[in-house]
Amino acid sequence: MEKLALNSVKRTGEEKLKDLRANKQIPAVIYGHNYAPVSVALDYSEFLKTYRVAGQTHIIKLSIDGKNQDVIVHEVQYHPVTGDFQHIDFMSVNAKEKLHANIPLKLIGSSPALRDWGMVDQLIDVIEVKCFPADLVDHFEFDISVLTEIGQVAHLSDLKIDSKKLEVHLSPETPIVSILEVKGAAAASEETPAAPAPATPAAEAPAAE
């Protein structure tokens, strides 16, 4: 997995957070095992571009006043009204140490049951794994086209996960997605009146002689 680059400036602690945000900067902190926490500031636009690609599963080469440190995004805080980035937590990465990461689960395909008043219910959005940084993956995929009937459920064991590289502590029987019946669909189907048969045209009266 190719590393992404991102610049940052070390904070002195004297800056006011509201002033940083007003200048289109995001306050952030870097921490990790055997790593003393460091407070930095990021350019808003630059982080946005990087985060769109990296998410929380991609290693970022973060430059701190010119000194590089490998990190991943651990937590993102948003403004409750505007949705703007408010604060970023980075976790330092050591190539020789395993880390914890939340890997997104993406559903692909289409279930035939959707044509029979079914709806997809995704039960898990992310799966926490423990692995070496080099073994990180962007996401897991599950093809819901194999769920052909209402009531069917897919489990964690149905995912293709390399257990030699990725440690998952959830039970293999953990449900990840199911097909539910749309509420009231059956009743609505039964109550829908049949279309009336076309009227038979009346026979014409014989012409008077």
Score class of each variant (00 low, 15 high):
residue 1 M to Y: 07
residue 2 E to N: 15
residue 2 E to S: 14
residue 3 K to C: 05
residue 4 L to E: 06
residue 4 L to A: 04
residue 6 L to R: 06
residue 9 V to H: 06
residue 10 K to Y: 04
residue 10 K to I: 13
residue 12 T to A: 14
residue 19 D to R: 04
residue 22 A to W: 06
residue 24 K to E: 11
residue 24 K to Y: 03
residue 24 K to H: 11
residue 28 A to Q: 01
residue 28 A to T: 12
residue 31 Y to Q: 00
residue 31 Y to F: 04
residue 33 H to Y: 05
residue 35 Y to I: 05
residue 36 A to H: 05
residue 36 A to E: 12
residue 37 P to L: 09
residue 40 V to G: 03
residue 41 A to W: 02
residue 45 S to Q: 15
residue 45 S to R: 15
residue 47 F to M: 09
residue 50 T to C: 12
residue 51 Y to D: 01
residue 51 Y to T: 05
residue 52 R to T: 10
residue 53 V to S: 13
residue 55 G to S: 11
residue 57 T to S: 10
residue 57 T to G: 09
residue 58 H to Q: 13
residue 58 H to K: 13
residue 59 I to L: 07
residue 60 I to F: 07
residue 60 I to T: 08
residue 62 L to M: 07
residue 65 D to M: 09
residue 68 N to S: 14
residue 72 I to E: 05
residue 73 V to L: 08
residue 73 V to D: 03
residue 75 E to Q: 13
residue 76 V to F: 10
residue 77 Q to K: 15
residue 78 Y to S: 10
residue 79 H to Q: 06
residue 79 H to C: 10
residue 80 P to L: 06
residue 83 G to R: 01
residue 83 G to W: 02
residue 84 D to P: 06
residue 88 I to M: 02
residue 88 I to W: 08
residue 89 D to V: 12
residue 90 F to Y: 04
residue 95 A to W: 04
residue 97 E to N: 07
residue 97 E to H: 14
residue 98 K to F: 05
residue 98 K to D: 03
residue 100 H to V: 15
residue 102 N to E: 00
residue 103 I to P: 00
residue 106 K to P: 00
residue 107 L to S: 03
residue 109 G to A: 03
residue 110 S to Q: 12
residue 112 P to K: 00
residue 112 P to N: 06
residue 117 W to H: 12
residue 119 M to E: 13
residue 119 M to W: 02
residue 120 V to L: 04
residue 120 V to A: 02
residue 122 Q to F: 08
residue 123 L to G: 03
residue 125 D to L: 15
residue 125 D to Y: 14
residue 127 I to Y: 05
residue 128 E to P: 03
residue 129 V to N: 09
residue 129 V to Y: 02
residue 130 K to Q: 15
residue 131 C to F: 01
residue 136 L to Y: 09
residue 138 D to G: 11
residue 138 D to S: 15
residue 139 H to M: 11
residue 142 F to D: 01
residue 143 D to V: 11
residue 146 V to T: 15
residue 147 L to T: 06
residue 149 E to M: 14
residue 152 Q to I: 13
residue 154 A to L: 09
residue 154 A to I: 08
residue 154 A to H: 06
residue 154 A to M: 12
residue 156 L to M: 11
residue 158 D to A: 11
residue 160 K to F: 04
residue 164 K to F: 12
residue 167 E to S: 06
residue 168 V to Y: 08
residue 169 H to W: 10
residue 170 L to M: 07
residue 170 L to T: 04
residue 171 S to G: 01
residue 174 T to F: 01
residue 175 P to M: 01
residue 175 P to K: 02
residue 179 I to D: 00
residue 180 L to P: 03
residue 181 E to T: 03
residue 181 E to A: 12
residue 182 V to T: 11
residue 183 K to D: 10
residue 183 K to Y: 11
residue 188 A to R: 14
residue 190 E to S: 13
residue 193 P to Q: 02
residue 195 A to I: 13
residue 195 A to V: 14
residue 196 P to F: 14
residue 196 P to K: 14
residue 197 A to W: 04
residue 200 T to D: 07
residue 201 P to E: 10
residue 204 E to C: 03
